[in-house]
Nucleic acid binder design. Structure first.
Length: 581
RNA sequence: GGUCCCGUAGCUCAACUGGAUAGAGCACCUGACUUCUAAUCAGGAUGUUGGAGGUUCGAGUCCUCCCGGGAUCGCCA
């Protein structure tokens, strides 16, 4: 239930009544009429722009429409007052009972309170992480993993039918490199001296893989040429890496529904089928690309290639799908992969990539537009860099020096909850600073702590209520007399709670889970503020010793805050804290 | 050079997708602990939203151009 949609429906109803009464012309489009909270609370609880957007098409003055509308709206019991202000805004103040009912609704519907039906019947595929299976996940992947996972949860909460998916890049040359690297570790495990040259992965994480292989194979592959072992070792090593990666993800609480193998596209005709589909739309041709504008690369020479006419769907240049040696480029299996997603019946596709894939966005969108004939939208979310700090000092990662920070390092140091929340305290397309010390700090400038603390306080006051012999179980609180919540500070908190369903919808629509984190921070702030006002004004305390009835209504409000925080944290994949000791 | 992203208070960032006088936190100053957890709260200042035009009732948000930072740019995936 979304209060803003309810009130908007009321406004639209009044506008239709005005049409019937001849105060507005027939056949008007009310689509641009909005009902939202005004930025300045002094303007009221909700504001509608109806008079302004309708003035021109109706050929009337905003003021005239607003006055008429105001008079009609005040007839409803939910509307306490309606005032025309500014250039033609209609500011609405709602009756206290409306806000009190919101609290009641939260207690009876619990975590379902913010759930939406906006995504009903819509199947969404969210692809994220999709790191190469050549080693453990590092910090950059962590952000993508958390973002993708929270986005998937958010969409699920908004009613979409969500599939979480990981694309395993196990078809390219990098898995050959992996296999050769494991081969070296295998020889090493059997007592040989080995050297890791350029073009191999020297990471320690392959040592146990080499050892396991040595136990498994004995010395059967020693001294044998690649042709003997490469195919088998490729699969073996990829499997080992995917185990590693799944464990990494599990440590963060990320669980995929589908792992899709790139390799499964080769030799099965699936790439060919996807390209054939494009070809049938006259989007595949042999041709020579122009050299890049500006500085031409030294070794540039014109070459005839097989190209995808991505410019037909908004790209800047056409893109090669086949190398001159006749092998597919990376783009070709990717096209086939998205073709597969489309054919699995998804209505919306979302890809979460690192920022270094920015140049890839247009061609991928072009491919999906072409393959689905514009039916399936593809949204590509790019996650920006994570900059790591310790004691305020940035520290550099270097793959070569082996000093890169893994997902596991981060999770082990600060825990999955903190990792997840912090990764969502910036929007995805802005860089994020991650300070190992700051994220564990217990203060207001650490949003994780601040939100958790609010939840813990509710748990605390409930425990104290129990000690004082005052019940705070869900049934008692749901039956509390909420009419006792009259103070403006209490109603203000209820108003903040009422925004939750609306926030879920806007966050889901824009594919921006960070909005949930920001909302929780604000809600926690409002809660802490009310809590502390109890210091000076005892009547605002959530626990009124000796007055069970009043305590019940105030505890109901506190409980409602905890329910919403808990639901929000649930979307972010964070466990609410019971206490902060 | 092309493309994409970013540019908002001294610092770190918001701004409900086009709404009213652009908001929080940090830092700085003042005040509140025999108290429901002071790990918190209340009060106080700060702006040419990088710049210039345009679209309209209304622009941080949309369009054009420019400035600055980052990413990326035909057989790497």
């Amino acid at each position: 239930m979304n209060l803003f949609t309810d009130i908007r429906a009321l406004v639209i109803g009044a506008l239709e009544a005005m049409q019937e009464a001849g105060a507005l012309p027939q056949g008007m489009d009310f689509a641009s009429v909005t009902v939202e909270p005004p930025r300045d609370p002094a303007h009221g609880d909700m504001a509608t722009n109806a008079a302004m957007v309708l003035a021109k098409p109706a050929g009337l003055k905003p003021r005239a429409i607003a006055d008429d509308l105001a008079a009609r709206l005040t007839g409803d019991t939910r509307i306490a007052s309606a005032e025309v202000a500014g250039p033609g805004f209609l500011n609405l103040r709602l009756a206290p009972s409306v806000w009190q009912e919101v609290v009641g609704r939260i207690l009876t519907t619990r975590s379902e309170f913010g759930r939406s039906r906006m995504g009903q019947g819509v199947r969404v595929n969210v692809e994220y992480v999709s790191a190469n299976p050549t080693g453990p996940l590092h910090v950059g992947h962590t952000r993508g993993a958390v973002f993708g996972d929270a986005l998937a949860s958010l969409l699920d909460y908004a009613g979409f039918d969500v599939t979480r998916e990981y694309y395993i890049n196990d078809g390219g040359a990098q898995v050959d490199v992996l296999a050769r690297s494991v081969y070296l570790r295998y020889l090493e495990a059997l007592g040989q001296e080995v050297a890791f040259e350029d073009g191999t992965y020297p990471g320690d994480y392959l040592i146990p893989v080499g050892k396991a292989l040595a136990r498994h194979k004995g010395d059967a592959w020693v001294g044998q040429p690649e042709s003997v072992w490469l195919d088998e070792l490729r699969d073996y090593a990829t499997d080992a890496m995917m185990h590693l990666i799944r464990d990494d993800l599990a440590s963060l609480g990320v669980e995929m529904d589908v792992f899709f193998s790139e390799k499964s596209l080769y030799g099965t005709g699936r790439i060919e089928a996807a390209i054939e589909d494009l070809d049938s739309k006259d989007l595949i041709y042999r041709g020579v690309l122009e050299p890049p504008k500006g500085k031409t690369p030294e070794d540039w020479e014109p070459r005839e290639q097989t190209l995808f006419r991505s410019t037909a769907h908004g790209d800047d240049v056409d893109r090669p799908i086949m190398k001159s040696d006749g092998n597919w480029t990376y783009f070709a299996p990717d096209i086939a992969y998205h073709y597969d997603k489309i054919s699995r019946g998804f209505d919306v596709l979302i890809d979460v990539f690192g920022a270094d894939h920015g140049g890839y966005v247009k061609r991928m969108k072009a491919a999906v537009a072409a393959l689905s004939e514009g039916r399936v939208p593809l949204d590509i979310k790019l996650t920006q860099l994570v900059r790591l700090f310790k004691n305020g000092e940035p520290f550099k990662m270097s793959k070569r020096a082996g000093t890169f920070v893994t997902l596991r390092d981060v999770v082990e140091q600060v825990g999955p909850d903190v990792t997840r929340f912090v990764m969502l305290t910036r929007k995805n397309d802005a860089p994020l600073d991650f300070d190992f010390d700051k994220v564990l700090e217990q203060s207001r400038d650490n949003p994780v702590f601040y939100v958790q603390y609010a939840h813990a306080r509710v748990m605390s006051v409930q425990r104290r209520a129990a000690e004082a012999g005052i019940a705070s179980d869900p049934v008692t609180l749901a039956a509390a007399d909420l009419g006792k919540l009259e103070h403006e500070a209490e109603l203000a908190l209820a108003k903040k709670l009422a925004e939750w369903p609306r926030l879920v919808e806007t966050a889901a629509r824009s594919h921006e889970p960070h909005r949930v984190a920001f909302y929780l921070y604000e809600l926690a702030g409002d809660f802490h503020a009310l809590w502390n006002r109890g210091n000076d004004q005892p009547e605002l305390r959530f626990l009124q010793e000796g007055d069970a009835e009043t305590s019940h209504s105030k505890l109901a409000l506190a409980r409602a805050v905890a329910v919403v925080i808990s639901a929000g944290l649930g979307i972010l994949g964070v466990t609410p804290a019971q206490e902060m000791r």
